[in-house]
Every structure is written in C-alpha cells, then in structure tokens.
C-alpha cells in the first residue's frame, strides 16, 4: 500500500475513533499515538483481526501442485451510486463492465472452460439485470458478495448498519441465483473491525480481501480462531491499481503487457511453492479490447503447466477446510 493510501486509511480511522474499547488512549491532535502504547496495547489493537494458521494442504486434489482462482469483482457503478455520484459519463464507465466487459470475459472463460468466482455488488446487479442470469446459467461459476453497493465499511463503522447491508445484499443475490453465497469480498476492498464477526454470524465460510500471506489461512478474531478462511488477494495481482483508465482515477502502469508479465511471474513462483494463485480482475477494466487477450493468454500459459487445479474460491475453501480438519465450523 502506498504512503498516500496508508495516510488516507489512517485519517479514516482517526476520524471514526475505532470502537472505543479497542482503541488505546490517544491525546487529542496527536497523529502518532502508537508510539506511546505498551506492548500489550499494541498487540491487542493489532490483533482484533489477524492471520492465524496456514491452510495450504499437503497436496491439492488429484495431485495438483497449485490451486488457481480467477476472481472478478463486479462493482461497475456500485461505488459511484453509494457515494451518490450520478455523473453521467462516469456511470457509463461502469456500465461498460456490464454491457461490454462481462460478455468478453465470459467468452474467454467459456472457451477456455475454466471455473471462476464473481464477487458482485448487489446494486450493480440491480441496475444491470442481465448480468446475474448470465453467471447463473454457467455451472462452473461461483457468485459471492461485494457488499450492497461497494460501500466503504470502515467509513460506516457501525456493526448494525453493516450487518443490515450485508443481509440485504445476500438476500438479493440469493433471490436471483437461488443459492446463498458462502464467500465475501469486502466492498471497496475494505473490512471494518466488525466485518469478520458479521460474516461468521451470517454463515459465510470465507473472506477474500486481506493479504497477510500468499496462501490460504484461518482468520483470528481477537486472537481466537474464527473458523473463517481467508483466500488472500494481492494488490499486485489486481488490475485496478495498474490498469484502471483515467476516467476512474490514476493508473500506475497502463501497460497490460507489463502487468501480465507480473501476473505470470507470480504464477511461476506460486507453482514452484505449491500454494495458491488468486487474481482479482474487474470486467470494466480487463474487458477492454486491448486487455482481454492478455487474460486469454495467461490462462493458456497456466494450462500449459502440468498439475494445475483451476477452481472456484468456494471449492478451494471447502477443500482446505476438510484437509485441515475444520469440520466443527
């Protein structure tokens, strides 16, 4: 995360005084309060949500060396809508995801015959009703949640509101797909201190938002195993920071060739280490004409290696839970 993002995240938490009982003391106006906290206070503060044991199994199904999860965040205009941003041109930038991007992505996935997971913001599905039925009719695709409207749970910082939004989102997605989602990605790629507890309470099996390792792990809540599996993402394996188009914000490396070089190098190391390879793409970014071929080529490259297990996130989670004996959850 860049300095700028860290500062931004810091300011957010300054503003909202992260739930009083978990926040050690800070003097008013002190921007570096952590330097005065004791070891115990720091551990408690950092340990509200943290990484527990690794869940990479001894071997993947059928002797595969690596598990590959292609994941897509279907946010389109959801975040604009959450912010009340109704600027017409910006909204069409998101609409591109539904109208042009997603069909292109599905064409590649169909032709390559690989499974994938789509984390969908409910409002994105509401304003473009053609999307979910297209996903539902493909049995190899999983649908997870991306909040009600790609909102920012840290800014909301209210457990009841967040639970209500997740409930509405789950209900809407279940109604259209006929199936309750078991996986969640934090909307806006953000989790509040309440999120994991809410997911557990709501019967979710996994989250895919954090990045403490590059292999599956169990999430700890206040130091205790939560039973929720984390399939970590990586900002380096995400098209958003690098490939976004100026209409959505600055892009840091608007060269799909260089970005996919990193995606491939990362896969090579994941294959070598025998863990998990999970990439995060957005149909409104990767579905542009100049980028879609690189996704096709990446899948072809991965398939050229022996013993690769392409799976939905849900399949991976069920497998690692079973291998780790997490049947009590």
């Amino acid at each position: 995360m860049s300095q700028k993002m860290r500062i931004a995240a810091g300011l957010v938490s300054l503003g909202i005084a992260v739930s009083a009982q978990q926040q050690p003391p800070r003097a008013p106006g002190d921007t570096q309060p952590g330097r005065k906290w004791s070891e115990a206070q720091l551990k408690q503060f950092a340990g509200v949500v943290s990484a527990g044991r690794k869940l990479t199994p001894r071997g993947w199904p059928n002797g595969a060396r690596v598990a590959v999860a292609l994941t897509f965040s279907l946010s389109n205009t959801a975040n604009n809508l959450a912010r009340g941003d109704t600027a017409v041109v910006q909204l069409t930038g998101g609409e591109f995801g539904a109208v042009a991007g997603l069909p292109r992505v599905l064409e590649v996935l169909d032709r390559q015959n690989v499974p994938a997971t789509f984390f969908v913001a409910a409002t994105a599905a509401i304003v473009d009703t053609r999307m979910l039925p297209e996903l539902v009719k493909r049995k190899q695709l999983e649908i997870g949640t991306l909040g009600w409207s790609d909102e920012n749970p840290l800014e909301i910082n209210n457990a009841a509101t967040e639970e209500q939004l997740l409930g509405r989102a789950t209900e809407y997605v279940s109604k259209i797909t006929g199936k309750k989602p078991i996986g969640a990605r934090g909307p806006s790629s953000v989790l509040s201190l309440h999120t994991i507890g809410i997911l557990k309470k709501s019967g979710f099996l996994y989250d895919s938002t954090m990045m403490a390792m590059d292999e599956p792990y169990e999430i700890l809540l206040n130091g205790q195993p939560s039973g929720i599996v984390e399939l970590p993402v990586s900002r380096l394996l995400d098209d958003q920071p690098t490939l976004t188009a100026p209409r959505f914000g600055p892009s840091t490396l608007p060269s799909p060739e260089l970005v996919f070089e990193t995606f491939r190098d990362d896969f090579d190391a994941a294959y070598e280490e025998g863990t998990l390879y999970l990439i995060t793409l957005h149909p409104h970014l990767i579905g542009m004409r100049s980028r879609i071929q690189y996704l096709d080529d990446l899948i072809t490259y991965i398939k050229s290696k022996p013993n690769v297990w392409f799976a939905t996130s849900a399949e991976i989670v069920r497998y690692v839970k079973q291998q780790a004996g997490m049947t009590n959850f």
Binding site: G10, S13, V49, T209
Partner: peptide
C-alpha cells in the same frame, strides 16, 4: 510491517494484513 499504521493509530484489518505479509511471507 504494521509499525507505520499502528503508530498512526490505524488497525483497519486490510491494512494490518498488508503489514503482516512482511513478517509472514
């Protein structure tokens, strides 16, 4: 790792996990 965020009083879970990556992977 997590020191920069912690000093600023930030324990947002995704930020914490980004810091833990340094130590764990």
């Amino acid at each position: 790792n997590q020191s920069i965020a912690l000093n600023r009083g930030n324990n947002a879970p995704v930020t914490m996990s980004d810091g833990e990556y340094g130590a764990l992977s």
